[in-house]
């Protein structure tokens, strides 16, 4: 028994030391959802495409690494990173304090406000609010805007995607009948069909949907919402132990932002510059 014990201890020690040495990032596995147009989605050829896929390839080239993409459903995307299924999440994921309890993030590579949407002809479209709602700003004006939004939405069915900043926002600030969807695509369909009165999501995704025939009846209302628990923009999720990888991403992202690559990619997919 003693021998086994010694042997196991030795193995664990050995493996731990090999773990500490593991920092070979010549190959980086990037986890993404593939159902969040235009950030990341799946085309008719069955390939993962989108702004984040293009950006990831660019960042990997800057880091002299091979990128390999791994599809993972949104609801398991953080557990699978922690388990090691891939090394980085690039899936339109906002950097929030809540998530930073479990994983760490690179600096933001794109920022975009959250926005409410509804169908054309809904009474909500006539709602007038301030243009911006900054949750970092604790002023009376902020409280007023939230109050207006809340009064208009009271008791209505609001759709959000599960485990997002938008779900957190709705839970924290709104008194609504919250409907939680596994993917953005499903929520979009229900918004058009009228199963929900309004949806809260990032504005780029819903804009992409408005450009399609079935999303033609969808329109924005209310303020641009950002700050506070909505986080500090979209970043790459990285395991907390991989500080070296985070540093590599931070550097590559800063370069890509400086030379206009991020601006170019986001303009191509979103029609506007989302560089942080």
């Amino acid at each position: 028994m003693r021998i086994i014990k010694v042997f196991t201890t030795l193995l664990i020690t050995l493996s731990l030391s090999s773990f500490a040495l593991a920092g070979d990032w010549s190959k980086i596995r990037v986890g993404t959802e593939g159902a969040y147009e235009p950030w990341n989605y799946t085309n008719a050829a069955g390939e993962l495409v989108g702004a984040e896929l293009d950006l990831a390839r660019d960042l990997c080239a800057r880091m002299n690494a091979d990128c390999e993409f791994v599809q993972q459903d949104w609801d398991g995307i953080i557990p699978a990173l922690v388990q090691g299924k891939y090394d980085v999440i690039m899936a339109g994921m906002s950097i929030t304090e809540e998530r930073m309890k479990t994983i760490s993030f690179s600096s933001a590579y794109m920022t975009e406000p959250a926005k409410m949407s509804t169908v054309k002809g809904s009474p909500l479209t006539t709602l007038s609010t301030a243009k911006n709602l900054n949750l970092d700003d604790d002023s009376a004006a902020t409280k007023g805007t939230i109050g207006t939004l809340n009064a208009a939405l009271k008791g209505l069915r609001l759709g959000v995607t599960a485990a997002t900043i938008h779900e957190d926002f709705a839970n924290a600030y709104l008194d609504v009948d919250l409907k939680i969807y596994p993917t953005q695509d499903e929520m979009n369909l229900d918004l058009s069909a009228g199963r929900i009165d309004a949806a809260l999501s990032d504005s780029g995704t819903i804009e992409a949907y408005m450009g399609t025939p079935s999303g033609a009846n969808v329109t924005f209302f209310g303020p641009n919402i950002f700050g506070g628990l909505l986080g500090e923009g979209v970043g790459a999720g990285i395991r907390q132990g991989d500080a070296d990888l985070k540093a590599m991403f931070d550097k590559a992202i800063a370069e890509a932002a400086a030379d206009g690559t991020i601006g170019r990619i986001s303009t191509q997919y979103f029609g506007k510059d989302l560089a942080p």
């Binding site: 593939g34 159902a35 147009e37 989605y41 799946t42 085309n43 008719a44 069955g46 993917t183 695509d185 499903e186 979009n188 369909l189 058009s192 399609t212 025939p213 079935s214 999303g215």
Partner: peptide, 12 residues
Amino acid sequence: QSKIAAGSTHEP
């Protein structure tokens, strides 16, 4: 596959 296609094309 049908879910991906339905989501991508909005033709469930």
